[in-house]
Computed example of a mutant assay.
Amino acid sequence: MAVILNKLYAQGQRMDLRLIAGGEGLNQMVSWVHMVENKEASSFLDGGELVFTTGIGLFQGSTLMDLVKSTYGHHAAGLIINIGPYIQAVDEDIILFGNEHCFPIFTVPWRIHLSEIIRQFSYMITKSDQYDQETAAAFLNAIFFPKQEEMYVVSLTRRGFQAEWAYSVVFIQVEGKKDGPTERLNEINNLLKAFLMHYYEKFMIFTHEGRLLLVLADYSETETHAIVESAMQYLGKILKPEEVLSYGVGKNTRSIRCLYKSYHQASSLQKLQAHGKVDRSLHYYSELGLYKLLLAIEDPDILEDYYEKTILPLINYDQEHGTSLYAFLQCYLETDCNAKVTAEKLYIHRNSVTYNIHKIESILHISLSSLNVKMQLFMGMLIRDFL
């Protein structure tokens, strides 16, 4: 449940809400509103709240600056100060603190009822949450029930996502989240959403089964790459040292009806990357090469059967006899079957290369002089990484 602070501020200006510091922090997401009258009460904040104070709880030894620092320290989205009998003015050092820390600080005159501002802001946050939930549900319906267009086309069109636009899915996983993984993922979701909203409009980001799904709408492939790169750079800044990021980006679709294809491409690529099956620098489905053919095969039994008839017998032989013929074959194929380079890479004699080739040919009943055979074996190795 969150709405960007800048939208609340736009609404609050109609009620004489005035920003006095921290304008660079207006792109934060506000999770809820909360009254805090002293620094002790700020310990009840969960983070992301827009805090209101009249100053009635400030007593001797506790200052407004203490309250400002405390709310900031508990990750509030901003602070609204009610100027009146308890706080007559905001000192310059508080304004300086807000600007230095990009912490939005507002004032509102006493004649304005805080209850009315709180009511309006709470309504906007609730409606934003409802919008996000319904939009996310429609996109999930498009992914998992693509043939049932009545479950998503009209709903998304009403929200400005046209059916004939091109769409791309970014499948994001953050591993290593320790305390409160669900809460941390929601926090990352809100932070990334606020960042993207500052620069882009046609997107939707939400959590699903412990991952983040980012849907980009009506962007070219070049624009999609630019958006994804900026988003990942931002994530690199906000993630904790122990958190590990992996992601996959599906191909642009022809319409919303093909969104499921981009989703499956992105999710499969992310899983391959997370398990070390492909280079971690590969993030885009369009860059996968031969792996794209494997991803297009929906029946895993086909891949299993191919693997068992090409590479598995050699792996079984290695396990039974304590040899490393599979590793040798992998190096041999990767060096374009160059015996000299293979010998140098593996630190073995050229005669050993010849011996291993004959041994592999005998085990697999093949001839490595055949280009077709070498292609089959190479594909079998890719399938082994893929499974």
Score class of each variant (00 low, 15 high):
P109A: 01
T135F: 07
I87S: 04
K127T: 14
H198S: 14
V90Y: 01
A136K: 15
F97Y: 10
L96M: 11
S122R: 11
S122M: 08
L196T: 12
V153G: 00
Y131F: 14
M197D: 09
M124V: 04
Q133G: 11
F144V: 08
F145P: 00
R159M: 14
A136I: 06
C102K: 14
L185P: 07
H101F: 09
A137W: 08
L114N: 13
A163G: 00
K177D: 02
Q130K: 07
T182A: 13
L185T: 08
A138L: 06
C102R: 13
F171I: 00
V169T: 11
D132H: 15
F195C: 03
F171N: 10
F171D: 14
W165T: 08
Q130L: 10
I112M: 11
V154N: 13
F161H: 12
L192V: 07
M124T: 10
Q120T: 10
A194L: 01
S168R: 12
I117A: 10
Q133C: 11
K127H: 12
A89V: 10
Y167I: 05
L185I: 07
I94P: 00
V90A: 08
A163P: 04
E164V: 03
H101G: 00
A142R: 10
E164T: 10
R111F: 12
F145V: 07
H101I: 00
E164C: 00
Q130V: 03
H101V: 04
D129T: 09
I143S: 05
D129K: 08
G176C: 03
A194W: 00
D91H: 09
K193I: 06
R159K: 15
M197C: 05
Q173T: 13
I172V: 12
I87R: 05
E175V: 07
I95M: 11
Q173W: 01
D91I: 02
A136R: 13
I118R: 15
R111C: 05
K178T: 14
D179F: 08
V90F: 05
A137P: 05
N190A: 15
T126P: 00
P146M: 00
D179T: 14
N141W: 02
G160T: 04
Q173G: 12
Q148Y: 09
G98H: 03
V174P: 01
L185K: 07
M151K: 14
S168P: 04
P109C: 03
A89P: 02
L191N: 13
N186L: 12
I125D: 07
Q173K: 11
P85F: 03
P109R: 02
P146A: 04
A136W: 09
A163W: 04
F106R: 06
V174K: 02
K147A: 12
H113W: 12
M124Q: 15
H198Y: 08
I95H: 02
E149M: 06
A137K: 15
L114E: 08
E150W: 06
E149R: 13
N190W: 10
E100A: 14
A142K: 09
F97H: 03
G160N: 06
T182K: 15
I94N: 01
L196Q: 11
H113F: 14
T126D: 09
I112Q: 13
V169P: 03
K177S: 10
L140T: 05
Q130W: 01
F106K: 10
V90Q: 06
K147D: 14
I95G: 04
V169S: 02
V90E: 03
